[in-house]
Design a protein around this nucleic acid. Structure first.
Lengths: 223, 223
DNA sequence: GCTGGAGTACTCTGCTCAAAGTACTCCAGT
DNA sequence: ACTGGAGTACTTTGAGCAGAGTACTCCAGC
């Protein structure tokens, strides 16, 4: 009963919307956008109609009626089923209670730091820090606007969380940038040498050459 | 020259590996696993051979030679091209310098907090906090192992960053849980009422009913 | 009265990508 | 000699999904 892959969280968004009242898919998309949920859940029409179809096949929602205004395309109004309400409840509970491995793009980039020369990395991280500051300023500006509309915090906790993550990222980026700039990052001599002499065979990256022998002697899986 | 979508970061990982020395795809996958990069970049064979094929079509890598050991499948050894090195450089620079919107699953879940009753949410967030603590302990244990092998920090900054994010998440989750438990989260009365009387039409969620009128009067886009 | 842009409500197309499968080798154990 | 499990090196498959496209309406402006 743990977190078997449930796929696109947009399907959860659809269940939540339909649990309020029956809607047609396009209305779901406008409601989500009005509430700025498309900042937290990837939303586009291709996926929307795909997940609605899938939810219907799984019996979690049902087509209630179809109407037509003029010669515009037909609108199919869906309603959530009891099974759908159960699934929504379980899915949300799972997401809240169980951390899953996300793959933030910065983590990937940091994995390959050594492929770029250190001085370039200093500049690039500085650039990122500046952009993060700008973004944070922008987000808190719009948040103030929302607050002035008196929409209770309950409805924008996700943007609060977003800012927490962004601030943590900014802190780390700044710190790492400074450490590289000041030559304090462990391994920096190796890093510099490799990029200054791309032709020469790279020297040993290990901090303590004695340890290398140990390392090779005992092929422990530290992977 | 900005961040046009470059697709799967696994392709970047391949470029980085091949920039060290020519390899066949399977060797790329074992190298990435040895260095624990599969913690930061989604890695599986289906995608690996797909991205290698795409890189070849785009002229960023070339098949150098193919060998065969016994009657095992043929191994195609690839090498990076000059264009590939340029692409690697640009891609990495982009990733480092430009923050992009990731969609962490907890952010999606928090977007729909109000769909679950508050007391359940308190329990679920408590559960998550406990699991995060467990994970953090686990990660710092393996990190110590890596340190004892004297592998310089330069090669595990990504796991450092991962821990920074996890700790920030833990802090926020704990705080939010406590605020809900203590009834301090703005909007909690509405939240409780809605779940205690699912039949009754929901009351106005706005903090200050007077503001609602203003809100309706000036349809500013706060989306 | 006609053009052009914003909005409505989807549909189509083709790529991506994860999981599982395939087909072999090498070796340890019995 | 034979079975079985771990490892090697890919290939196949089909669902998922993003972006672009379609076909209409409504309205403002000249």
């Amino acid at each position: 009963m743990a977190s078997r892959n449930r796929g696109n969280p947009l399907a959860l968004a659809v269940l939540v919307c339909l649990s309020e009242r029956p809607m047609h898919p396009y209305e779901v998309s406008t409601v989500l956008r009005q509430r700025a949920k498309h900042e937290s859940v990837r939303l586009n029409y291709g996926s929307l109609y795909a997940v609605v179809g899938a939810l219907e096949r799984r019996g979690l929602i049902v087509a209630k009626e179809t109407e037509r205004a003029g010669r515009l395309p037909e609108r199919t109004i869906y309603d959530v089923t009891d099974a759908g309400l159960v699934e929504m409840h379980e899915w949300l509970s799972d997401l809240l209670s169980t951390p899953v491995k996300d793959y933030p793009s910065l983590e990937a980039a940091l994995s390959f730091l050594a492929a770029l020369p250190p001085d370039e990395v200093v500049d690039l991280l500085g650039e990122r820090a500046r952009r993060l500051e700008f973004e944070l300023a922008h987000v808190s500006a719009t948040r103030e606007l929302v607050e002035r509309h008196r929409l209770p915090r309950l409805f924008w906790v996700e943007s609060e969380f977003q800012m927490v993550l962004r601030r943590a990222e900014l802190g780390y980026v700044r710190q790492l940038r400074d450490e590289i700039a000041r030559g304090q990052l462990e391994g920096i001599e190796w890093w510099r040498t490799v990029h200054e002499h791309p032709d020469r065979p790279p020297p040993d990256p290990f901090v303590d050459p004695v340890a290398t022998a140990e390392q090779l002697a005992s092929p422990t899986d530290h992977a």
